[in-house]
Design a protein around this nucleic acid. Structure first.
Length: 161
DNA sequence: GCCAACGTTGGC
DNA sequence: GCCAACGTTGGC
């Protein structure tokens, strides 16, 4: 029996990597790298699999919120940036033999016509319980439920009309 | 820019 | 193993 599809929320600062940056990539595909938190790393390594769907969330910079959706097209592989001394994500304690950090590959699924903001999420009965709304929730890779994922898509579709 | 929350580091 | 200090995250 096939594994059930899972749903996630990935955070990025839009000035570092935006949904337009992903849109501009060949094949609208990019590695999701630079994750340097063990709990988030464990999700990428163990639980995020091809076919899973992801909310693309903007953190720290306006507009804060969900900018669109992505699909996972490749699962956990060593994060290439950890081996690059010129990268801000370089980790001298990591090695090719024992890579510490993991990346997955994402593909753009849909770009929303506007960012679904935290107040939008908080006003939705389905989305108001999302982890990302909890105070002090810094995890950059978070699970969401299928219901939350669909509700965010619906908020975006409704606001586009 | 502020500040609370959190994760990591390092001395002991 | 403890825990204070420090750096980072992230919303406002």
């Amino acid at each position: 029996m096939a594994r059930a599809r899972r749903y996630w929320l990935f955070k990025s600062e839009p000035s570092a990597f935006s949904i337009d940056d992903l849109d501009a990539r060949p094949g609208q595909t990019a590695p999701w790298d630079g994750v340097r938190n063990y709990q988030a790393r464990n999700f990428l390594r163990d639980d995020v699999k091809p076919g899973d769907l992801v909310l693309f969330y903007y953190s720290r910079e306006e507009p804060i919120g969900v900018a669109g959706t992505m699909e996972i097209v490749a699962g956990g592989e060593p994060d290439a940036t950890q081996f690059n001394p010129g990268s801000p994500y370089y980790d001298p304690k990591s090695s090719a033999e024992a890579p510490r950090w993991v990346q997955v590959t994402v593909k753009l699924k849909s770009k929303f016509s506007r960012v679904i903001t935290r107040p939008d999420l908080a006003a939705s009965p389905v989305c108001s319980g999302m982890l990302v709304l909890k105070r002090g929730m810094r995890l950059s890779i978070q699970p969401v439920t299928a219901e939350e994922f669909r509700a965010v898509e619906k908020l975006a579709a409704d606001s586009a009309s």
